[in-house]
Write a protein that binds this DNA or RNA. Structure first.
Lengths: 224, 224
DNA sequence: GTGACCGTTATTGTATACAAAGAGAAAAAG
DNA sequence: CTTTTTCTCTTTGTATACAATAACGGTCAC
């Protein structure tokens, strides 16, 4: 990640992305290039550039007549994304097990220690959990040493709907997630690709069902 | 696929892409926006748009200083791409087996019949083979009904180096490819996801080794 | 009142001019 | 002769003006 953000298109990209993640631009909302250009303090040219990237990452969809809208993911869409993520991330875990170095293993352990501390507080520190969780998966991806795999996974994680749901994880889910992370580290230390792949598959599938449960619960509340 | 190609950026995209595939823009060549704008008969704006797309599809890479070059894939890069393609396309085959309809099955059989005819000519009609082969895989992808999976696979197939190698397939490889296609149709007809996935994995892996052999052979000839 | 047609307006697509940033060449210092 | 520095020129980034196109709303015929 660049620290400078020198280019206007980069700034526009970051700003629009965070507007979508935060909900300032809600799902389904039409996007007007000129309006965003104003809000970002740049001209339409870099905004268009940013929109192309966000479209490739599925944050934005375009109608047949080229108008842009904030993506509105159905449950089916999320399920499809999780299926792909399961496949890709399990593959990454296998590759990582075959390639990981001692320094990377140590960094995984550190991330897990931070997660453990965040969970065991009286009020779990969910933002810390999210940051360290992201770091944990990023290290694995790095160890997998496949730039294309990384690029693909980026398309399939961190959609707004998923991020918002993670905020409502209960303590049990947080603890299970940590346990799976620790088992992954064991598998990596033994360089057991089969083991790592299987644990990662279970890890992502559990996360999916946690999402689906939260989603269903939310639906019930809306109905009441 | 749009027939009109109404927009200038679409025309630019198609033209530049075919220049790369045909070798008119060779690997490693630096790309100048203005020069391409001239050759495509449009301004730089749509060319830049097209370059962004081609960059996302890994036809083009950008240096740290934002200059664009035609991607030059190493053997390792190609191997990585084949590994991802194996995983993605096998997954697609499983999903297709669970969802495919009779009309799609029939279209698969038609494609195979065309391939069979193309192969059995005294001089195999390789272009016909390539067209029908692409169609066969496209139908499977359609049956898999996962737009994101389709988008990801697009990033990983049809790189210039692979396409050029396919032109040198020998008769034995062509025949084996057809045989695997026919076995896939059998698996689909029985709706056997495991079978379809396994055959597809074998299909792609064989293709990879055919590529690797051709590559090694070419290296030998260059050395001599 | 309903539906089709047409003009207005909002929005995106393209061209062009200019600004900024880098690479390469030429010149100067060691 | 090598290395460093500066300058120029190529190339990309951004702003703006204008063209094209699609959505919206109103009018007219029935």
């Amino acid at each position: 990640m660049l620290l400078t953000m020198s280019k206007a298109s980069d700034r526009a990209y970051a700003q629009i992305r965070s507007m979508i993640l935060s909900g300032a631009l809600p799902p389904g909302e039409q996007i007007r290039e000129e309006q965003l250009a104003e809000r970002c303090g740049v001209s339409r040219t870099p905004v268009r550039d940013a929109l192309r990237r966000l479209e490739a990452e599925l944050f934005i969809r375009r109608s047949e007549s080229q108008r842009s809208f904030v993506a509105d993911w159905s449950l089916g869409d999320v399920e499809e994304a999780f299926a792909l993520r399961t496949m890709l991330e399990s593959h990454a875990a296998r590759r990582a097990a075959e390639r990981i170095g001692w320094d990377q293993l140590e960094r995984l352990r550190l991330a897990n220690a931070a997660i453990s501390k965040a969970i065991e507080a009286d009020i779990p520190e969910v933002p810390t959990f999210l940051v360290q969780n992201r770091l944990f998966h990023a290290i694995i991806l790095q160890a997998a040493a496949s730039p294309r795999l990384s690029a693909m996974l980026a398309q399939v994680v961190e959609q707004p709907v998923v991020v918002r749901t993670a905020l409502h994880y209960d303590k049990q889910n947080l603890a299970r997630s940590l346990h799976e992370h620790e088992e992954l580290v064991l598998a990596f230390a033994r360089r057991d690709g089969d083991w790592a792949e299987a644990v990662m598959t279970a890890h992502i599938r559990r996360a999916f069902h946690a999402y689906a449960d939260a989603h269903a619960q939310q639906r019930e509340q809306e109905a009441a």
